[in-house]
Write a protein that binds this DNA or RNA. Structure first.
Length: 270
DNA sequence: CATCGGACCTGTTAGC
DNA sequence: TGCTAACAGGTCCGAT
């Protein structure tokens, strides 16, 4: 589910409810997420005031003076702010109980997400090798072109590599490559510097627009207020196999690229 | 180092 | 209508 726009939408939704609040405790119903939830997380959070809610790549960081809780939503995770009495549904694996009677509740049927603890002044290994944020100045076509040199893997796969640039997953890789007019199967090393400049801008444009729309809801993504995201209505190729390209009318193609389903317009993308 | 396949899970949908 | 297989937004890890 969640790529950068969904995670950022989640961050913006929960931040005003969390910052300045004190955590009563972490209520864990199921520790078996991507990695077992360590006792250090509850110990790090309990009793401390929340200073901020940040996003790095597709990770959310809930900060206090002792460190940060790291949340990843995996494929099917979502967070909502609810009153503490709200009935618990299936797959709601933990609650962060706040001092104002609300809880931050985590829902994740597939349990590919995680909840980790990062002590202050420490960088968790998962965050150590991440590439630049798409909206940072260090992300540009020149960097993409340089890193792609000699790579034979498809450019779509390259764009989804979080060491190259963070936040781009299967949906937005397809959409950005469509916008840039690049065939997703093309070898990363065989895309020109000029076209990488176009692609970098396309990534920023697509992600920014998706954030404005509250992300993409395909099946179960919900914003923290329970509303779906509305970017699905604006998808140009993702999930549109056989349907006419919105630009030229050619049937949108689909095929697996690196084990992931991909969609593109064979006429607009070369 | 780059690339590939498998692994982790459950729910929904497509196809017979 | 019912059963089964395929597939789903992520990404780590080990083998090659």
């Amino acid at each position: 589910m969640p790529e950068l726009p969904e995670v950022e939408t989640t961050r913006r939704g929960i931040e005003p409810h969390l910052v300045g609040r004190r955590v009563r405790r972490l209520l864990l119903r199921e520790r078996r997420l991507r990695w077992p939830v360590a006792d250090a997380v509850a110990a790090g959070l309990a009793g401390a005031g929340i200073d901020g809610v940040r996003r790095r790549a597709k990770y959310l960081l809930i900060d206090n003076a002792r460190g940060s809780a790291i949340v990843h939503l995996g494929m099917s995770g979502s967070l909502r702010v609810l009153v503490a009495e709200a009935p618990v549904r299936a797959h709601e694996h933990w609650d962060l109980e706040l001092d104002d009677g609300h809880v931050l509740r985590y829902h994740d049927p597939r349990r590919f997400g995680c909840l980790l603890w990062q002590p202050a002044d420490d960088v968790h290994p998962l965050l150590a090798d991440l590439g630049p944020e798409p909206f940072d100045a260090s992300f540009d076509g020149a960097r993409l072109h340089a890193r792609a040199r000699g790579r034979s893997a498809p450019v779509k796969h390259f764009l989804m590599d979080q060491r190259i640039v963070v936040g781009v997953g299967n949906i937005y890789a397809a959409e950005a490559l469509f916008r840039a007019g690049i065939d997703p199967r093309r070898a990363a090393g065989r895309v020109s510097a000029t076209r990488y400049e176009v692609l970098a801008q396309a990534v920023r444009t697509i992600l920014a627009h998706a954030i404005e729309r509250g992300g993409t809801t395909l099946r179960d993504f919900l914003r923290p207020d329970g509303e779906p995201g509305y970017f699905e209505q604006e998808l140009m190729v993702y999930g549109r196999a056989g349907e006419p390209c919105r630009i030229c009318g050619t049937a949108v193609r689909t095929a697996a690229i690196g084990q992931r389903s991909s969609y593109w317009c064979p006429s607009c993308q070369r």
